[in-house]
């Protein structure tokens, strides 16, 4: 069963990865010659052309692409223009920090959404309900970088409770994770609320209510189980969006992850790094989809893969 799913993953992955690499190659190629900004102000055109030739950028695009692809097949993922070393380790070095941030942001989103959703459901259509959904939507409606800077000013500069930027300790993780996580709490809270309402509407719960002894553990468990499959789906979809949001958040907090690397690579048209980074993210997306399928199966054995 898992093998079938794995086979399907491969079947899906190869064409997607191929298309992604082609699209990125075309776009970055169209963006123009990266050497223009690599060379110092006092270098001449001849110097630049020497660099162009050294990097093989004087070749026609299809030749460049074919060479690039054949290098990949032989395990050479290209050299970064700005770092001057192999692109693959540069990208892989940054991966753990981004995974950590993404996971922490997911935890924050869940930590906000579950209580908020339950609270809203228990006080359906009341002011509390409106306030809770309003607040969670507000998190989604604010630009990420703005939230990040506000948090820095409040918790870093004014209250001096948390480190402003960088990485290294658990405290460093909090502000970026909150910045990234709040944007995703809204959708999740809505789901939890709906599941909770459905659970509360069921006969035996109503009976329990009538007896005056609602079993909160039972209610919570049911509601969360109802919410489980949509939550997993949403999480898997959000991972891509989280990685996108990481571009901005990591820049604000000087978080040494993939997002910051990609932003810089785009600024410098660092083809090899952009390619590998997009490649890695695409693989992650596909793996998440794969993982989602497996988790479905675990949650609900009726679903066949």
């Amino acid at each position: 069963m898992i093998l079938t799913a794995f086979g399907r993953l491969l079947l899906q992955a190869v064409p997607v990865l191929f298309t992604v690499s082609l699209i990125v190659f075309i776009l970055v190629f169209l963006a123009g010659d990266p050497t223009v900004m690599m060379i110092p102000d006092d270098a001449t055109e001849a110097d630049r052309l020497a660099l162009v030739a050294a990097w093989g950028l004087d070749q026609p695009p299809h030749v460049q692409y074919l060479r690039y692809m054949s290098n990949i097949l032989s395990g050479d993922f290209g050299t970064s223009y700005s770092y001057g070393t192999s692109a693959l380790p540069i990208v892989l070095d940054r991966l753990p920090a981004t995974l950590l941030l993404t996971a922490a942001a997911m935890v924050v989103a869940i930590a906000i959404a579950v209580p908020a959703g339950i609270l809203a459901a228990l006080n359906r259509n009341s002011a509390i309900d409106l306030a809770v959904s309003g607040a969670s939507v507000l998190g989604k409606a604010m630009p990420n970088f703005w939230v990040g800077i506000m948090l820095i000013l409040i918790f870093g500069v004014q209250l001096r409770l948390l480190p402003v930027s960088g990485s290294g300790t658990f405290a460093h993780l909090i502000l970026p994770a909150v910045t990234l996580g709040t944007a995703f709490a809204a959708d999740l809270a809505k789901l939890v609320r709906a599941s909770m309402l459905e659970t509360l509407g069921q006969d035996y719960i109503r009976t329990a209510y009538a007896k005056g002894i609602p079993d909160w553990i039972v209610i919570g468990k049911h509601a969360l189980r109802n919410a489980a499959i949509p939550t997993v789906t949403m999480t898997s979809l959000n991972v891509i969006a989280l990685l996108g949001g990481a571009l901005v958040t990591e820049t604000v907090f000087a978080w040494p992850g993939l997002g910051q690397l990609i932003v810089n690579a785009i600024y410098t048209k660092d083809m090899a790094v952009i390619q590998i980074a997009v490649f890695v993210i695409t693989v992650m997306t596909l793996l998440v989809n794969f993982g989602t399928d497996i988790v479905y199966r675990l949650i609900d054995p009726r679903i066949r893969l």
Binding site: V20, V28, V248
Partner: peptide
């Protein structure tokens, strides 16, 4: 559809930045 799959697999912000370069 391959194109659609590919674009959906890239974070939108990342894809936009690369297009904006052009």
């Amino acid at each position: 559809m391959r194109l659609v799959d590919a674009i959906l697999a890239i974070p939108a912000m990342l894809f936009m930045l690369v297009v904006a370069l052009v």
